[in-house]
Simulated scan of single mutants.
Amino acid sequence: MAGGPCKNGDDDDKCGNGDCPTVYATPKPGMLAIQGYDVAHPVPDGESVVVIPEEILKEAARVRGWL
């Protein structure tokens, strides 16, 4: 898991509701799960497009040893 503590009350709060965007490892090799903000974009059933701060993806890469 990569992400970080929410900064509740901060003017730059990217979490809004205290539940931060996060990148999670999954049991499937090479697959990550992304928790983020919903966006209005048509996708097939069972799929979602989410927006996350780029810092979250960079931290995920660092934690997994890719950087």
Rank of each mutant, 00 (worst) to 15 (best):
P53F: 06
D10K: 01
G3S: 06
K58T: 08
D19K: 15
G36H: 07
D38E: 15
G4V: 04
A2Y: 05
V50I: 08
G30F: 06
T26V: 02
K7R: 14
A25Q: 04
G46D: 09
D11K: 10
H41D: 04
Q35C: 12
G9L: 02
V51W: 13
V49T: 15
G30S: 07
G65N: 08
V43P: 02
I56T: 11
N17P: 05
A2C: 11
L32H: 03
P5E: 03
E47N: 06
N8R: 03
A2K: 05
P29V: 06
P42W: 10
K14R: 02
S48D: 15
E55W: 12
A61K: 11
P5K: 03
C20L: 00
L57Y: 13
D45K: 12
V49E: 08
V63A: 11
L57F: 15
D12Q: 07
Q35L: 13
P27N: 03
L32P: 00
G3Q: 03
A25M: 04
C6F: 00
A2D: 11
D10R: 00
P27C: 01
K28E: 08
N8I: 01
G4H: 02
V39T: 14
H41Q: 07
C6R: 01
P27V: 02
L57Q: 13
A60R: 13
P44M: 09
L32C: 09
A40Y: 08
G4I: 02
G16C: 15
D19R: 07
P42Q: 14
Q35I: 01
H41T: 10
K14Q: 02
E59T: 15
R62G: 04
P42F: 06
G36K: 04
G4K: 10
D19N: 10
K28T: 07
C6H: 01
Y37K: 09
V23C: 07
E55T: 15
M31W: 13
N8F: 00
L67T: 13
R62T: 14
G46A: 05
Y24D: 05
N17W: 00
P53S: 09
V39I: 10
Y37W: 10
A40N: 11
C20N: 00
